[in-house]
């Protein structure tokens, strides 16, 4: 196995209703890196990550062009199964991700599609639920869980597939402070390459050493999270604002660990 975890080249894409979302995206993420994907609403962040496992884009029959490699494997129609096992995608709204009648069914969905059955499947489900601390809620229906719990189960559904790359779309949105911290603890403890879309800049600084800044369907900046957040001119040019009183230069980041 060779090559970077994620490699994207000249990626272009338009939605079927005519909206063009990506105007040529290039970036590379090495194995084990934790990268935040920042940018204003409508920058094309979600569209970009949906390309990473071939859900959108020319592979899926969409209108677009460009090249994507995951762990050295080119994204091609014939490799979709492999790619989708390698790239775990956690959607922004946990209700999109939890579609089965119970938590257990839902976490089992991915590994079952990989061919796991019986005791092996049960073990995998339990392991993933333990990782997010939800093992006691396996038999509940998703609509009986709190929002924070649903977000954690959503992460578990993807962890159960043992991905090499974990991609999260705004993992901290709509979480109360305690749930937000608990999720950060879970994510910090995982041994995977991480790409995380977020508007929560302190969260990006806490979890990710490197950040990509996206605007207008292109990557406009790529560097250390602390440097990007400290660049007031760059930040305001792309409608990014730090929370009141937050100084990115004075708080500890992931570099210290």
């Amino acid at each position: 196995m060779s090559g970077p975890a994620i490699h994207v080249e000249r990626l272009v894409f338009a939605y079927p209703d005519g909206r063009q979302a990506l105007y040529g995206v290039d970036f590379t993420v090495e194995r084990g890196e934790r990268v935040a994907l920042l940018g204003p609403n409508g920058a094309g962040k979600t569209t970009l990550v949906l390309h990473l496992n071939g859900i959108l884009g020319s592979v899926a029959g969409g209108s677009g062009s460009g090249r994507i490699e995951i762990g050295g494997t080119g994204l091609h129609r014939d490799h979709l199964r492999v790619i989708r096992r390698k790239v775990g995608l956690v959607f922004q709204d946990p209700d999109d991700q939890l579609f089965m009648p119970t938590v257990r069914d839902d976490v089992a969905f991915g590994p079952a599609n990989l061919g796991l059955r019986g005791a092996e499947l049960d073990d995998r489900v339990r392991e993933a639920l333990v990782q997010v601390g939800m093992q006691d809620h396996a038999d509940l229906a998703p609509h009986h869980l709190s929002y924070g719990q649903r977000r954690r189960v959503a992460v578990a559904t993807v962890l159960a597939m043992r991905p090499e790359v974990l991609v999260l779309d705004e993992p901290s949105s709509n979480l109360d402070p305690a749930s937000r911290r608990e999720l950060a603890d879970i994510l910090t403890g995982l041994d995977v390459t991480l790409l995380m879309i977020t508007h929560d800049l302190p969260y990006a600084l806490q979890l990710c050493e490197r950040s990509l800044l996206m605007d207008g369907g292109r990557i406009v900046a790529d560097g250390r999270t602390r440097d990007l957040l400290g660049d007031a001119e760059l930040m305001s040019a792309h409608r990014l604002e730090l929370p009141y009183g937050f100084d990115p230069l004075s708080v500890p980041g992931p570099e210290g660990r």
Partner: peptide, 20 residues
Amino acid sequence: ERGERVHLAMQSRGYTGRMP
């Protein structure tokens, strides 16, 4: 649109047309 996203979420977890 939620239906589309759910389908995407299913595909990204290896759905190939058969529900378990």
